[in-house]
Amino acid sequence: MLLPKFDYHEPLSVDEACQIMSDLGEKAKPLAGGTDLIVNMKKKILSPEHLVALSRIEDLRKIELLNGSVRIGACVTAAELAESQEIKRGLGALGQGAGILGSPLIRNLATVAGNLVSARPAADLPPPLMAYGAEVVLKSRRGERTLPLETFFQGPGQTLLEIDEILTEIIIQRPPESAGAGYIKLGTRKALEISLVNVAAYVALDSSGTTIEAARVVLGAVAPTPLRSPSAEKLLIGEKVDPSLFEKAGQAAAKDSRPIDDFRGSAQYRRDMVAVLTRRALNMALEQARRA
């Protein structure tokens, strides 16, 4: 399979990258890990005239701790996320998602920003990131804006990213000690897998460790975009932890999901699995919260 012809740009700074994107507009696409874009170009689904490679921009490759927040550079790879001590400490569900994305070979190329910008409904990183309430930083010559990740996705392959913008950073406020999160993916095989359904759940307990103070439940592959489940969250917040609560939250999440039938699975199955995975992800989250 041959790639279509294109011009290649390799800026060394974010400013330079923004300048190029601003000059080229629709003709250009930023290239990060390439695991999605290069495949789509080989399959002739996309054929941008220009690729703007971000891989040489050192600023985009860092994971930094800053005033209680974790800032993840756009070009941090899934493997780096999965292995990062900063992520393991307190952001374990993100590490879990990153550690199960694609295959070890893919994880060494695929980047966190790529996994967001490609906006695949079944992607592994959006649910845990949304569960932690992550924000994304979008930069262009026109300036910089920060958006909650959950507003970023507009549909399969569709985001709020403007044609001249680059997603440069993901910001997560470090969760309190009493919080925990879990991520689960259901597929048919154990690697190289696209989720049939995935769920991330986040809970924060009160000081007594028995009541849920905050909760987020995020569902993947069951709607055009990763989806928060307001009903499940409402049901959880302020309640005392007990097994039937998570069962009910799972059922509420299933009702919020909007899956479709496709060749990978039926809507009915996906909806039922949302209930199961939500309960399991909540249990993982609880276990982590209690460990703290």
């Binding site: 295959s103 048919t188 095989r189 154990k190 690697a191 190289l192 897998e193 696209i194 060749f263 990978r264």
Partner: peptide
């Protein structure tokens, strides 16, 4: 064919 590739035509991996 909807799955004419080795991502969606799933043969066992080492973990399966």
């Amino acid at each position: 064919i909807l799955n004419a590739n080795l991502a969606e035509y799933k043969i066992p991996t080492c973990l399966d």
